[in-house]
């Protein structure tokens, strides 16, 4: 196995759910380190759904989005059958 000292630490969920196994050697055999969690977030931390206001909130930040969605629904053609491709 290559020895890359700079590599990320990756944890398998199998380590937290010991009832599941993989084909050969078990999940722990391929985990390079004890369970730790990488800290990187994708580009920036997305908001959790729970952080968002309720849909009918007076200060709903998505109200503008709803108006725009209605406009787009009006402006684009109805679903149109396409030739099968590939």
């Amino acid at each position: 196995m290559p020895d890359n000292q700079n590599a990320l630490e990756v944890v398998l969920s199998s380590d937290r759910y010991p009832s599941v196994t993989v084909n050969r050697g078990g999940a722990s055999a391929i985990a390079p380190q004890a369970p730790t969690r990488p800290t990187e977030a994708p580009v920036e931390n997305p908001a959790r759904p729970a952080d968002r206001p309720e849909p009918d909130s007076a200060s709903d930040p998505d109200a503008d989005l709803d108006d725009e969605l209605e406009r787009i629904i009006r402006e684009i053609p109805d679903p149109t059958p396409q030739p099968g491709g590939e």
Partner: peptide, 13 residues
């Protein structure tokens, strides 16, 4: 993750 672990060891950096 099986693929990620190996790619990580071989190619990170």
């Amino acid at each position: 993750r099986r693929y990620l672990v190996e790619a990580n060891l071989r190619y990170f950096g």
